[in-house]
Design a binder for these strands. Structure first.
Length: 260
DNA sequence: TCTGGGGTCCTAGGACCC
DNA sequence: TCTGGGGTCCTAGGACCC
């Protein structure tokens, strides 16, 4: 609510982050930051860090630069000075695997990443991600704020305290997870066509199996049966550490309640 | 560094159809 | 009968984010 009083163009990112489009706000950056900080402090007693930049990618990085209770302004002119010296891992979308990969190529900073050609990045990382890295290293990000979205999947998973071998326990767990998912789904008025089962073994190997059914369903029985059909296709040679169930391929039901 | 849960997106390969 | 191209759907796995 604090943030919505600033602007209604807002994208929630998880529980404690958001992007705000303040490009049309008449107040100065400093004034807006002050309103946000004091508003959040009054409501929650918490401080926050704020980044102001021409796009989401840079705003995210900027907000990270002065961590407790800070504010960083990033302009298009700061790319070389502020972005390029940073380690690659600071770039949104670069995780441990890509970091490792790039370091093996002797790329340590975002600036060094920016020295690679688009062709070589696409060759190494595939079309979409290679192109993303090329642009991100230059601070380019045209992605709009997403103010409304629909879920693409519902899932539940659980890790056992002790690795299990007992088929009964596995089956019961699948049934329980399914029940919770179906409850989520029906509360939010969705039905699904594809049911995924995820199993992690005691050696951390993780496999998935999917079943796509004839039409969309929100029936606990139908979805549980599909999950069991997936389970049948798994060779349970090792103990199981984690079980997960996910439904994808969703259809939103209209407010007028339809039979499930 | 190794901890868990709920998500998203991407890629590759196979099946099937025209 | 064989070869090949293009499109779509499905499955399995991987990487990343909060």
């Amino acid at each position: 609510m604090v943030l919505l009083s600033i602007t209604t163009i807002m994208e929630d990112v998880g529980i404690d982050e958001a992007f705000l489009d303040i490009s049309d706000e008449p107040d100065s950056n400093e004034a807006i930051v002050e309103r946000i900080k004091s508003g959040i402090y009054e409501k929650t007693g918490l401080t926050c860090s704020i980044g102001i930049a021409p796009n989401k990618l840079l705003a995210k990085i900027a907000s990270d630069m002065q961590k407790p209770n800070g504010m960083t302004v990033f302009t298009g002119d700061d790319i070389e000075k502020k972005l390029w010296p940073l380690p690659i891992r600071k770039l949104y979308g670069i995780g441990p695997k890509t970091e490792e990969h790039l370091k093996a190529m002797n790329i340590q900073t975002i600036g060094q990443l920016a020295s690679l050609s688009m062709e070589s990045l696409i060759k190494r990382f595939g079309h979409s991600y290679g192109y993303y890295l090329y642009e991100a290293a230059r601070g380019i990000d045209e992605s709009p704020l997403v103010t409304h979205w629909e879920p693409k999947s519902f899932s539940r998973e659980t890790t056992f305290q002790v690795d299990v071998k007992d088929w009964q326990v596995i089956a019961r767990t699948i049934a329980e997870l399914t029940k919770e998912i179906v409850s989520d789904m029906s509360r939010r008025h969705y039905r699904a066509r594809t049911i995924n089962l995820k199993i992690r073994f005691d050696d951390f190997r993780t496999i998935t199996r999917a079943t796509t059914i004839e039409g969309y369903s929100g029936s606990e029985e139908v979805i549980r049966k599909a999950a069991f059909a997936c389970l049948k296709r798994v060779e349970l040679a090792r103990k199981v550490r984690l079980i997960g169930v996910r439904v994808t391929n969703l259809e939103k039901l209209e407010k007028v309640s339809l039979p499930v």
